[in-house]
């Protein structure tokens, strides 16, 4: 790759970042108007939630199970297996719940949103709306953006619950830890403010980021089939990078 092209590529990246920022301002500005379309918002929350629920529950179960298995081995070195419930719960609430849920939602609901909006653009539905004097930013973009913010923490909670259930399944039912110790140590150590709410804040931010990227990619997708396909891919790639980067930054500030 020659220097010129690389600079172009970098320039392109900066330009898209700026466009995405402006798009965020435009969508945020359209949010008050979009509250008129609260039905559409409910539909989108239901859509994102229902679409991702099965995959989030399944993955939560397996993540909790594998977490218990791994942590059991580590904790038994120190003779601290009684803290297995605490360790599983903390890993889930603080880190894995928000992050893995966000990655799953980006792959499942984010791509669907991008493809849907991209097709609406390609088939002139967005233009048709503005011709009918309905602002597509308020009717299409803002409800989907808000839906991500609302649905993500709820899905993360489901993920965590399934994860703890999976951890319990492995730790207590399979490896034979004491049920009372598992729950007792967990509930006495995990703090609402420090552990659970921090995770929820992360989820809210991730929800906003994922849905903003998904809506932006759909909105700006070239109106062709390759264009829409390429934009859906970019939704997953960009979301994943941004989720993990934000996760690091937010964790650094929270601890």
């Amino acid at each position: 790759m020659n220097a010129n092209l690389r600079r172009n590529w970098l320039l392109q990246g900066v330009v898209s970042l700026g466009e995405c920022g402006l798009f965020f301002v435009a969508v945020a500005g359209a949010v008050p108007k979009s509250l008129r379309y609260w039905r559409e918002l409910c539909r989108q929350v239901w859509f994102v939630g229902a679409m991702s629920l099965v995959i989030v529950m399944t993955c939560g179960l397996f993540v909790g199970m594998v977490l218990a298995l791994q942590l059991f081995n580590t904790l038994s070195i120190f003779g601290a297996t009684s803290e297995l419930g605490t360790a599983v719960a903390l890993s889930l609430f603080r880190e894995l719940g928000p992050v893995v849920t966000a990655l799953l939602v980006a792959g499942r609901a984010g791509t669907a949103v991008t493809a849907e909006i991209g097709l609406m653009r390609a088939t002139d539905q967005l233009d048709a709306m503005s011709m009918m004097a309905v602002d597509p930013l308020a009717y299409v973009a803002a409800p989907r953006f808000l839906a991500g913010i609302i649905a993500m923490p709820l899905l993360a909670c489901v993920f965590n619950a399934m994860g703890i259930f999976g951890g319990h399944l492995v730790g207590v039912t399979w490896l034979g830890l004491d049920n009372g110790t598992f729950w007792g140590n967990m509930t006495s150590t995990v703090m609402l403010q420090r552990d659970i709410l921090d995770g929820v804040y992360k989820s809210i931010v991730f929800g906003g980021v994922v849905s903003l990227i998904a809506v932006f990619q759909g909105y700006t997708a070239p109106p062709t089939s390759e264009g829409v396909a390429y934009s859906t891919t970019r939704t997953v790639v960009f979301s994943s990078i941004v989720i993990l980067a934000f996760d690091f930054v937010m964790t650094a500030f929270m601890t």
Binding site: L119, D124, Q125, M131, M132, A133, V134
Partner: peptide, 30 residues
């Protein structure tokens, strides 16, 4: 724009709505 009708090259019907709701859409909005 409420006084101008626009027929798009590819019809641009809203895919989520039935024919009835497509035509009702501008009425419901305004």
């Amino acid at each position: 724009r409420e006084r101008i009708g626009f027929l798009f090259q590819n019809s641009a019907l809203l895919t989520d709505f039935s024919v009835f709701e497509n035509i009702a859409f501008p009425l419901r909005q305004h």
